[in-house]
Design a protein around this nucleic acid. Structure first.
Length: 240
DNA sequence: AACATAGCCAACCGCGACTTC
DNA sequence: CGAAGTCGCGGTTGGCTATGT
């Protein structure tokens, strides 16, 4: 059957983005919001493929991106989540506000992998590199991961796991408790909070593409920065 | 100072999943 | 129900910068 190209290659720029292109993209999304990436380049006056625009926006131009070095806490959270989820970078990114899947993936490949190897752990399996048998001191995360892989169909196992995979998380708060919150706190906080708790909650249903769908019932407010950005991907998906 | 190598990260590519017609 | 269109993910690549010789 063959697959049609995602865009017309003849008249599209490739490679690094220029400041002008960035400005055009940001200006367009500020006015029209995200979504409909295929038609966006033309509408925004960009000679780029829609995919490229999406990537540039998500990985570099989004106003909520953190940038800068990963903290020790983020490091540990990434390791923990990778132990359970594997290379599900987008899901892992969903647990790290302000970080992108690409950023985490790069960080994993350049830093975290080595860190695990230095600890004598296989970065792929999170098991000791030269120990064939499973040690009794295996972390609870790894035990969880093994349990999940042994019985994929058991929802109860997942509920009993100490890692909550609910995709709703909270933004950091000004209070001392959360400003120094550990990754466990972050996870349990997310677990404790219902999807629609308050306006500070970021809904990763939206981030993951389940915007305005049955899968997402929180109708989150994104505040000043997000308000202008949030727009249903397709108007027809909007509830009537 | 010049070159080689390693490290890092932005961007691209291909494919699977999902949606629409 | 199937084909076509679109989106998003994960793997990979290429180019720039830092570091070593």
């Amino acid at each position: 059957m063959g697959r049609s190209p995602c865009c017309e290659k003849a008249h599209t720029n490739k490679g690094a983005w220029t400041k002008e292109e960035d400005q055009l993209l940001v200006a367009y999304i500020k006015v029209h919001g995200e979504g409909c990436w295929r038609s966006l380049p033309k509408a925004a006056g960009l000679q780029r493929c829609g995919k490229s625009c999406r990537l540039r926006w998500i990985n570099y131009l989004r106003p909520d991106l953190k940038r800068g070095n990963f903290t020790e806490e983020e490091d540990e959270l990434i390791i923990k989540l990778h132990g359970v989820l594997g290379n599900k970078w987008s899901v892992i990114a969903g647990r790290l506000p302000g970080r992108t899947d690409n950023e985490i993936k790069n960080y994993w490949n350049t830093h975290v992998k080595r860190k695990l190897i230095a600890r004598g752990l296989d970065p792929r399996t999170h098991l000791p590199i030269n120990g064939g048998s499973e040690p009794s001191s295996l972390s609870s995360d790894r035990r969880t991961a093994l349990a999940l892989s042994k019985d994929e169909s058991s929802a109860e196992d997942r509920q009993s796991s100490d890692l909550n995979l609910n995709l709703a998380i909270s933004l950091p708060r000004a209070s001392p408790k959360s400003s120094s919150a550990s990754s466990e706190d972050l996870l349990s906080e997310a677990e404790a909070a219902p999807a629609s708790v308050h306006a500070r909650t970021i809904c990763f249903c939206y981030h993951l593409g389940y915007r305005a769908s049955e899968a997402c019932s929180c109708h989150t407010s994104y505040g000043d920065n997000f308000g202008c950005l949030y727009r249903p991907l397709r108007e027809r998906q909007q509830p009537t």
